[in-house]
Design a protein around this nucleic acid. Sequence first.
DNA 1: TTGACATATTCCCATATAGGAATATATATT
DNA 2: AATATATATTCCTATATGGGAATATGTCAA
Lengths: 114, 114
Amino acid sequence: MARARTTSDAFNAVAEPRRREILNYLALTERPVGDIVASLGLEQPSVSKHLGVLRRVGLVRVRRHGRHMLYRTNAEAIRPLHEWTKEFEHFWTHQLTRVQERAEAKSKERTSTE
Amino acid sequence: MARARTTSDAFNAVAEPRRREILNYLALTERPVGDIVASLGLEQPSVSKHLGVLRRVGLVRVRRHGRHMLYRTNAEAIRPLHEWTKEFEHFWTHQLTRVQERAEAKSKERTSTE
DNA sequence: TTGACATATTCCCATATAGGAATATATATT
DNA sequence: AATATATATTCCTATATGGGAATATGTCAA
């Protein structure tokens, strides 16, 4: 089997840095494709393709305005990602874990790989 | 250019569902590969390969114990992912946004794509 | 209708993937 | 040393990718 499609879910779609940039850029306001092209410094076809991926996964919403297509981030679709990462949050916030890790690090020093 | 390598960063590594499962499984305790194999129901070589990817990106730590390799999740490496998603958090928590979206939804009904 | 503008789609290609199967490596046990 | 156990690596293949270039589609203006 090959790698899962970029359009299979938000996790895969968001793995591409340019698409994250696009989502950042479209977070606050809807924008036409041309603005994204200018802002990211990518070729227009590339941007359109990235937007296509994001749209299929529901990460952006579109509406037409004249000959412009106005895109905006649909934050709700990022939520699953946030929820998943959140599960690990206390591992780096709780002091206890830090102390524990320090202690363990000592015995690991010699066994770390690469 | 092709897709970025799975080993290029945490975002790419975590796009694969099996690897997320592994990270969940290894979050609380370190475990030998055999346990992961049994738990996930994957072939042993597959698990080793996934662990290899996770290790290169720093998402897991290993130490040897006899002939066992004990893996555990390194939550710190998930942090960038959490931080990125966090930026969008208030979009689904704030009530105002919800109301706003409702209002906008009305005008969008006819323009949604696909 | 013709032309300009905005965006999307198609064709091209080198590249990495995940899984399966087989095998290699490393450590412990006897 | 020989064998068993635990894990890693290699070889294989179908598949999707992202960018570039070229072109198609759609919409407005005159």
